[in-house]
């Protein structure tokens, strides 16, 4: 089978990958591009742990075919902070202790960053609905919601 070379923008920098099969973007990020922040859990779009921004839209990278991102812009959790300076969502989670095992955290950072960019003062219901696609199997939702309620009150 012939390989497909894909060129795209990854966290603001030009990137490429060589794809031999109908792999997901998640596989390429983790296995080829050494960006393991996006997690692999359900592989069916139910858990949100692989959330990334694709051309400014929040999506599950496990449901994006790698061969379909030619020319697109991809931002992963690794692209959320400015160097070592956390973004507001990361800082809020850090301050609220909104992390238990940490597996869902990258997806929640990406989803919440998308929420706060569109809506800097979300209500609690809006926060919950925006995070409906991100599952925390430690069930640590209380601290996560509180972190974003605090952020909504201070932005």
């Amino acid at each position: 089978m012939s390989a497909l070379i894909i060129n795209f923008t990854l966290n603001g920098e030009p990137a490429n990958a060589r794809v031999l099969a109908p792999l997901s973007l998640l596989d390429v990020l983790r296995d080829q591009l050494e960006l393991p922040g996006s997690k692999n859990a359900c592989e069916q779009g139910e858990c949100g742990s692989c959330s990334v921004m694709l051309d400014d839209e929040l999506v599950c990278s496990c449901l994006v075919m790698a061969g379909d991102i030619e020319g697109s812009r991809v931002t992963t959790v690794e692209g959320m902070a400015n160097g070592r300076v956390l973004n507001a969502v990361q800082q809020a989670m850090h301050e609220a202790g909104a992390v238990q095992c940490g597996f869902c955290t990258p997806g929640i950072v990406v989803a919440a960053t998308d929420l706060f960019e569109a809506n800097p003062k979300p209500t609690t219901d809006e926060i919950k609905e925006a995070l409906a696609g991100n599952i925390c199997r430690c069930t640590g939702y209380g601290a996560i919601i509180r972190a974003f309620e605090d952020l909504a009150g201070t932005t």
């Binding site: 069916q44 779009g45 075919m65």
Partner: peptide
């Protein structure tokens, strides 16, 4: 959108 096809791909049901 890939939300059905990629599940098939990820689970080895489509290639």
């Amino acid at each position: 959108g890939g939300t059905d096809l990629m599940v098939e791909v990820n689970f080895g049901h489509a290639r």
